[in-house]
């Protein structure tokens, strides 16, 4: 089972109620549960602005959590809806205020795809895997992260991104097919090396 599945389970309503009443420990529990997948989603969707956007999202949560109603899946949906709106706002801001990075900074933005594939295959760390997914078209990358990292079902993802479940499935399958093709193009990991690479990557 992937990390992104819901881990608070039956204890979630109690934690949510305490957080809504201003309990810091309860909020910390929610944060520890949801922040890592949120950060990974934002990293794939918005790159280096992920941490800033995550802070903004948690500030939104802190302000509005008293009005939230629902279980753990609904909370995840709400949290990533807030995150997605932040990403859209940022993309709009960037479109209105385009930045032209200098030659020194440009190579640091994101690794080139060839380097990413090589890093992913040599040492499949979480960051490398996310970087590999981030090379996909934005929509496919977003849907794959929401399904694999956050652990949402296709119907929940469809409601979040405003598409039909069928369109979400098609986009996810195309994204996986593209990933598989690029991995094969970059070079295979030998069966005896696969375990070693997974063990090293933490």
């Amino acid at each position: 089972m992937f990390y992104g599945r819901f881990v608070l389970g039956e204890g979630f309503p109690k934690v949510l109620r305490a957080a809504a009443d201003g309990d810091a420990a309860a909020f910390a529990t929610l944060w520890r549960d949801s922040h890592p997948p949120l950060l990974r989603y934002l990293w794939v969707a918005a790159g280096d602005a992920a941490e800033d956007l995550a802070s903004d999202v948690w500030l939104d949560v802190a302000r509005r959590i008293a009005k939230f109603k629902g279980g753990e899946p609904e909370f995840r949906g709400w949290l990533f809806t807030l995150a997605r709106r932040r990403v859209i706002d940022r993309h709009r801001y960037q479109a209105r205020h385009p930045e032209s990075p200098t030659g020194d900074i440009a190579p640091l933005d994101r690794p080139a795809s060839d380097d990413t594939f090589a890093a992913a295959l040599e040492d499949i760390s979480t960051g490398a895997a996310l970087a590999l997914i981030a090379t996909l078209p934005h929509e496919q990358a977003e849907i794959i992260v929401l399904r694999v990292v956050v652990g949402m079902e296709a119907t929940d993802v469809a409601a979040l991104v405003g598409k039909s479940p069928g369109a979400v499935r098609v986009a996810a399958h195309r994204g996986l097919r593209t990933l598989s093709a690029r991995l094969a193009n970059a070079g295979s990991v030998l069966p005896d090396q696969r375990g070693t690479a997974a063990d090293r990557a933490v």
Binding site: F2, Y3, I124, S125, L132, I133, V148, V149
Partner: peptide, 9 residues
């Protein structure tokens, strides 16, 4: 392997 790495703890 890549997908499971993306979803690690």
């Amino acid at each position: 392997l890549v997908l499971s790495a993306a979803a690690r703890p």
